[in-house]
Amino acid sequence: MRMRVVGCVVMLAMVCGCKGKKIADADLYNVQAALTTGLPYPVLEWRAITTAVNRGREDGEGTAEATMDTLFGNDAAVAAARAGTAYPAGAVLGLVTWREREDPHWFGARIPGAVVSVDFVVVGATTVCREFAGEPLREVTNCGAKRAAEMEGMKAAWTP
């Protein structure tokens, strides 16, 4: 009986000893890739339309200029993108571009690193493109018709 109790205590100590273990924030969230305040739309609350990768120039070690984008849209934009129709007035697209970084949990994968820019295309009588960059994010340019056309041209990733 005594042995049983001692044995149980030993096992319990081993199993429960780790309860207090604290994991650093950076090992739980992708802290580097956070969007700061300063955007006119809640882009991460929107649904995604597609994602894309620009491998850039390889520097042998890896990720020199590689970026990773996700195109988000408000409801009107997502509906049009998935139906493959033109974006109606009121549709807003948001393209977040991150620098790529190696995935600390998987050799062979890359994940979002620091934010490079966030571009919005606001579809209307005159379509507007607005670019945000820096930390905190600030409006830097009116990104122009070419960029807007590029973003509108990104096709929705097909999902059953």
């Binding site: 992708n30 890739a33 991460l44 609350e45 649904r47 995604a48 994602t51 894309a52 990768v53 590689a66 990773m68 996700t70 988000f72 790529e100 995935d103 998987w106 050799f107 062979g108 994968a109 890359r110 994940i111 979002p112 990733a157």
Partner: peptide
């Protein structure tokens, strides 16, 4: 909503 995306060089896939 999106949690993250990954670019997989090991099998040439994109994941959301």
């Amino acid at each position: 909503r999106v949690i993250s995306t990954t670019d997989r060089g090991d099998d040439h896939t994109l994941r959301m």
